[in-house]
Amino acid sequence: MYDVPKLLGSGDSCLVVEFSPAIEMEANIRLQCLRRVLADRKIRGVREFVPTYRSLSIHYDPLRLSREKLEGIVSTSLEQSRESAEVPKRVLVMPVVYGGEYGPDMANVSSHTGFDEDGIIRRHTSVDYYCYMLGFTPGFSYLGGLDEALATPRLSKPRTLIPAGSVGIAGKQTGAYSIDSPGGWQLIGRTPLRLFDPNDEENPTLIDAGDWIRFKSVTETEYRDIERDVSAGKYRPERFVERNGGDMACRS
């Protein structure tokens, strides 16, 4: 992580604040803090913020906000965000039915890692995963925190269609497909949650960058029940906030 984040121009309507050249949770948490401080300031002319692994892109209208002025605001906000205290740890519980037809690559992961299905499920559900960023498709989250013992290479031949909600492993990454799409991840289960809903104006995606995900193993019957409630618009995903995460401090 850089001592002082770099301000990089990205055309006439975007400023990038880069915190690190690599993937580092500390850098990501810092940029989420900056995003929050800037969003709270409701700066005239700012269109939107796009956090990634290691940088925050600020899209703005240069006819309403000059680059100079924006850079000044970012510099003071960086100091302010450094001083701000702990960030609450927002956790989303994601029910997953593991194996069987929902996780057709469970056997691949098992033979690659040497764990049986129960061992894989236990390891996959035993940690919280940090969402660094969303990308690839709407609502697709890049999660960090996979137990390295579960790392399994991608399929050598990607599937042309993977159903939305499929949970997989690719190298040291894990995550859930947000919409039906092609892909090469090793599928170990599926969540009944709707990760992307274009009709939800406020929160079109269930997960936001900076959230934490906790996978929870459910039976096929529970999966079907939740799926039915989700379709009926009755299901409220389980969310909670942990405030004692010592490693979550915004301070450098």
Partner: peptide, 30 residues
């Protein structure tokens, strides 16, 4: 290659083959 970061309308990416790609309206976000 870099660790993925944001892109904008007009970003000029240069992959390993050295040939530029200008990203347009339906660009990916990162």
């Amino acid at each position: 290659d870099i660790v993925s970061d944001g892109i904008v309308h007009g970003s000029v990416q240069v992959p390993g083959d050295g040939k530029p790609i200008v990203l347009m309206s339906d660009r990916q976000t990162t």
